[in-house]
Design a protein around this nucleic acid. Structure first.
Length: 267
DNA sequence: TCTTTATGGTGAG
DNA sequence: TCACCCTAAAGAT
């Protein structure tokens, strides 16, 4: 979503919208109100996308598992069977959201009334979220006695971390998912905060490849399939750990799949 | 042509 | 924790 926000900003940000179209009837009145206005700034808050207009109103979208943004020159549409849900266009370019169902428009100043926004915790990709800030956040009283495996999926804890990053962060910091912030020593806490920060930003750069760059290059050259080398442990159950050669395990935590190396991430 | 799964999220109990 | 919502693609039959 962070990459998408950058793309929307560079394609149509700061420009007058000549087209603002919503697939949902309840939002139809906003079509007229926003057409002709300038799309001033595109932000993310965790996985949410916020399209801010010059009058202070804001389109909120969340892709959930389904949404997909596509970009085309003005007047063109991508070749897809997906359902168009939101279209934004300037004189020159269009940004098109397909399949997503979580779309709302918020009036100026009403941002915090949106339940997802109101609940969102520290946004790992925000400028304030450096390693020190993340480390301090993790040991906050509200979180210090909850298991890391559950915390990492909670958007009220850290906004933006999702299911594949959960497994990857725990692997890189060498921690078992059942540990709690209160259990960690200074070095482990620091390592965890560094892993959160590093892997989120690495994912932005690499389009979601969390494995070490050198290893990715090497395995790609060796003819490995992308799905088998892009992560340390995620989606690799049955295969061996890159660090210790022992098989990766899969468990269910918070109702989602979590992958771990039993040797590199002891209890 | 089914059933299942998914890098997500809510609300009830 | 579970049932449920949402949509599309992958997997099974």
């Amino acid at each position: 979503m962070y990459r998408v926000a950058c793309r929307i900003q560079s394609d149509i940000g700061g420009q007058v919208m000549s087209e603002v179209w919503f697939a949902f009837d309840r939002l139809e009145p906003w079509s007229k109100r926003l057409t002709g206005r300038v799309l001033e700034r595109v932000d993310t808050l965790g996985k949410a996308l916020l399209l801010n207009f010059e009058d202070g109103s804001c389109i909120y979208t969340h892709n959930q598992l389904y949404g997909r943004w596509m970009f085309k020159p003005a007047g063109q549409r991508p070749d897809t069977n997906r359902q168009l849900r939101l279209a934004l266009g300037s004189e020159s370019r269009s940004a098109l959201l397909y399949s997503a169902s979580e779309i709302d428009v918020l009036e100026a100043g009403q941002l915090e009334t949106h339940p997802f926004i109101a609940r969102a915790g520290l946004d790992v990709l925000s400028s304030e979220a450096d390693v020190d800030r993340i480390a301090a956040h993790v040991v906050d009283e509200a979180y210090r006695r909850r298991q890391l495996g559950h915390l990492l999926l909670d958007q009220g804890f850290l906004a933006g971390v999702g299911n594949y990053l959960r497994s990857e962060i725990l692997f890189l910091s060498g921690l078992h998912w059942q540990l709690r912030p209160a259990d960690l020593d200074e070095g482990q806490l620091r390592g965890f905060a560094e892993a959160v920060h590093a892997l989120m930003w690495r994912s932005v750069r690499t389009e979601g490849i969390t494995n070490d760059r050198a290893r990715v290059v090497e395995l790609e050259r060796a003819g490995w399939k992308r799905r088998d080398y892009r992560h340390y442990v995620f989606n690799r159950d049955g295969q061996v750990c890159f660090e210790c050669d022992r098989p990766i395990e899969r468990v269910t935590v918070s109702g989602r799949r979590l992958y771990r190396c039993p040797v590199c991430q002891p209890g």
